[in-house]
Design a protein around this nucleic acid. Structure first.
Lengths: 345, 345
DNA sequence: CATCCTTATCGAAGCGCTTCGCGGAAGCGC
DNA sequence: GCGCTTCCGCGAAGCGCTTCGATAAGGATG
């Protein structure tokens, strides 16, 4: 407990300079003669000096803390969240920032505003941003900057980092088409998300329709709640309605688990009878799949990193980097293979 | 940006009292006359006053921040971590504390000490504590209190919150025994953890051996790395060596996924031929299982909450609550059922 | 009515740092 | 050798709050 720590005052005294000189050697905001700097640094070393982040924050009005606001609808976000958090936390640490967690569902911007007004953080990372997200206004009206993980309808010149769903879907379809698949099913996210115009679901649907149409392929689409059982039902229904399908593209992390169960129940082997490709799946999830899954890996950690970097740019008064759609990278494993001719059963 | 906020000084002025009186009405550390208190509170409301956490921290030497140190070995921790974090973050918020993330693998106590010495947090929650964890010393030598999620060999009078593995295993075995199973396999965590004497693995093994022995049952144990493929291999090996087993107890979140694959490959149905029970599994993981899984739910969120509460007690100078082993609750779903007589194949 | 408590409030001294204005000492050209 | 610019370093004023000793105003007491 009562560990006493050296202050900048102590360092100044020991080095025989003034307090402000110590500060300037630390911040570099004014030149310090090499000799002086050396003395100061030695004094700091001898005293094991550690600058107090709290005092610094008070004096400079910068807390060096970033907040991560994430929605708390229980499950499902788990793995995705994790990867993004991991990237964000690493990037923050490298930049000497701390990362605090603000669990705020998108339904309660009031709480977010409350937190933001405390000014305990310099900026906020908003996860799972929806097209018209009230949280953005909540954060900005409190005078904090924010970076969007995802994208709102009109991000303006804010920092945003989204997934390139178009590219991912296109790549998935291309991968399958190149193997001779011509009747491809698509399991999207929940119907509610589509109805609400939620970006990822809508963009993926467009992309899928475009990718199949352009190639003259047949696409069968369905939506599924984000649970294994919903995925199972959706897939069973698809198989019943379109027994001739030879591939399934799934952009729904949890439904994925139900998809394989449904295929198995229907007596279809993977990838013998049906190929399965996951889209925007986190590496963590893919590893839990029963076969090594062919998937388009979500840029999770990178998304987190970029959001942090962008936010820091803004905080430092530099222009915000342009928003980016990060591509997913195709990981070919064992759930995809050449299409086999299949008689409708 | 430049949003100006009211300070306590402003409030004092408006209420016609001194700065310190405002402070005392806020902290309650000295009595304030009801009438005065009312005036102050009204002034605060009118000015939309928000106390600055930073200034408060500097003056009071309490940051009102808790740090969560978690190991960063990529995967696997995901779901478990999440639940614990969720509990911790909620408990912290309720107590008006912030929760920051410190990603520090247990191999680098130096980094942890560094962070602790910054005194940017009042206390540290240590996740995945090992029997002889150097991080404890790192945190305490910096003068911070810590709470252990898990337990070290000698927790002393520190706060610790672990899972009652004995109870969980016992409950799993009891559940199976009551259904007539007499030859039960156990898939533990990695051999390396057993060799290292890592608490959970070792305790679970003892418990399993005890639970089966006490009932005169036959137990087949094996260890598996924390991946689906390792689980698959381990299970295949078990089935080959002991074709007569009718149940598998799995205390290994990721191996679980491989277990079902191996059973399927061996032509065993679940729960017809073989029952599967997960132990200390998070709800999130259980939902990803292909069948509704019978499991002993890890007390994840509660673990996080308790650790926070305990830590806060200590920070407030009260005696630390005694360490606890939290029980897992049996969730009977569809992967367990009565034992069927089975001819060794 | 002088005395001694109580009780509510005030003023001031920090907490450990950043930042701004100032000024002494060199260094420069002419 | 004079003014002028540069370069460094100093002192002091905060940042917004907590906390401690002191004080004024009543009340109770003898």
């Amino acid at each position: 407990m009562g560990v006493t720590v050296a202050t900048m005052q102590d360092v100044a005294q020991r080095a025989g300079v003034s307090l402000s000189t110590v500060s300037y050697t630390l911040t570099g905001k004014r030149p310090v003669a090499p000799a002086t700097r050396a003395r100061v640094e030695q004094a700091m070393a001898e005293l094991e000096f550690r600058r107090s982040p709290v005092a610094r924050a008070l004096a400079s009005r910068r807390t060096h803390v970033l907040a991560l606001a994430y929605p708390v609808f229980g499950v499902s976000l788990g793995a995705t969240l994790n990867e993004i958090v991991r990237g964000a936390v690493e990037a923050a640490r490298e930049a000497q920032y701390e990362l605090v967690l603000w669990p705020v569902s998108s339904g309660e911007p009031g709480l977010l505003r409350e937190l933001a007004e405390q000014r305990t953080a310099d900026g906020v990372l908003l996860m799972e941003v929806s097209l018209d997200d009230p949280r953005i206004e909540a954060v900005e009206s409190a005078g904090l900057a924010c970076a969007l993980i995802g994208r709102s309808a009109d991000p303006g010149d804010r920092v945003w980092v989204d997934i390139d769903f178009e590219q991912a879907i296109e790549a998935a379809v291309e991968h399958l088409a190149s193997q001779g698949h011509s009747r491809i099913a698509f399991v999207n996210r929940a119907q509610a998300e589509l109805d609400a115009g939620y970006g990822p679901a809508v963009r993926a649907q467009w992309a899928f329709d475009a990718a199949t149409a352009r190639r003259g392929l047949v696409g069968y689409s369905t939506a599924s709640d984000v649970t294994p059982s919903a995925g199972r039902r959706a897939t069973s229904a698809l198989l019943a309605a379109h027994p001739d399908l030879t591939a399934v593209v799934v952009m729904n992390e949890l439904a994925l688990f139900g998809v394989s169960a449904a295929l198995r129940e229907a007596g279809r082997t993977v990838p013998g009878d049906v190929s399965v490709v996951g889209v925007a799946i986190s590496g963590e999830i893919s590893e839990m799949y029963d076969h090594p899954l062919t998937y388009l890996a979500a840029p999770g950690p990178d998304q987190g990193r970029r959001a942090v970097h962008g936010l820091l740019e803004v905080l430092d008064g530099r222009p915000a980097p342009a928003g980016v759609n990060l591509p997913c990278t195709l990981q070919v494993r064992e759930t995809s293979g050449p299409a086999t001719r299949l008689d409708p059963r």
